[in-house]
Design a protein around this nucleic acid. Sequence first.
DNA 1: ACATGTGAAGTTATTCACAGCC
DNA 2: GGCTGTGAATAACTTCACATGT
Lengths: 204, 204
Amino acid sequence: MTTISSKTIERFSIYRRLLERYAGERVASGVLAELAGVTAAQVRRDMMALGCMGSSSRGYIAAELRQAIGEYLDAPEGLNIALVGAGELGRSILSYFAGRHKKLRIVAAFDVDPWLTDRKLRGCECYQADKMPEIIAKKNIKLAIIAVPPAAAQQAADVLIKAGVTGILNFSPTALTVPENIFVEYNDITTSLEKVAFFARHIS
Amino acid sequence: MTTISSKTIERFSIYRRLLERYAGERVASGVLAELAGVTAAQVRRDMMALGCMGSSSRGYIAAELRQAIGEYLDAPEGLNIALVGAGELGRSILSYFAGRHKKLRIVAAFDVDPWLTDRKLRGCECYQADKMPEIIAKKNIKLAIIAVPPAAAQQAADVLIKAGVTGILNFSPTALTVPENIFVEYNDITTSLEKVAFFARHIS
DNA sequence: ACATGTGAAGTTATTCACAGCC
DNA sequence: GGCTGTGAATAACTTCACATGT
């Protein structure tokens, strides 16, 4: 497999969701591009990673394409996810995902605050943070979402990785130091907003 | 001004936050790079956009650098922001920003649900959605955060733009169609998580 | 010595443009 | 005619490597 572009993966995620609207139909690269906010050439270039799926002159069959993207992106059995930090942001992420995704399941939440732990939050059991190693092993959790204050993020990551997590989505505004074979994605709300503020002033 | 790189702006936001830890001190590009998770050359290249601030052989003066980044990124008077959609995600964003940022202020929230409106949420007044044009004009709001269900996002954007908003941070998983002179940044939690899932499986 | 500032080189990502197929 | 798949061209971004200043 040739080296995989991070941008292409992001777009697959977007294409896939857009394709849900086109159940039985065909979609041309230009139409998908328009919806996704990219160029038609970009869409076709991305599809090369799937081995290409279009019928000449008739576009892509939406259902086929969606399935192909699914086979490319998803782990067949799905993946179990831990949420670390069940504060407001964490709980809103729980709600956001609750039962929504077929392959990605948040199966445990963790917090240090005893008011939040040892009960269900948004349908998900919330455990004391010191149970992380045990529960992560027992539930075969491979991914984690970190939504704790910045000062606690690195330590949380260390514990998670030791327990077997290999991918982290970090909402905390801290760069994490992790081994080579662990993937970290950052989702920093402040940075996003500062970027909007800058470009809104400098556009045109 | 030479064309501004979106990536550089993101890193400025990160550098600035890291520099807070170094109040009176000096910081070398390599140190900042380590903390930000980039290379030293990258840091120095970014600094060129500021006109360069380092003292040869002694690194950067943290406070000066932070101020220079601030002058580059921030609107001097700051910017007022509207939150559209005061559901769980929206409210967690309110908490996240409440009084935290010196230049970016969420000064109004909007929702269609009467249970949420005409009262304060996390210290921020929440209005009925149909008040958007009026309040946005009155409070001189220039940016908006969209945290509504996907089906409502485009319409919200249309109203916001008509009312004078020029930058949007969109948490809804929908590409927005907007005029050329409006900046939209996407923050799609599902896409972030799918990306983590993919690369966690394919790394190494 | 030591760390910046920066041309030049290298790498990655996107778009062009057109051959080929339906 | 309309749309895909793709080599070639372009643009964007990052790193190298070293001259320069302290």
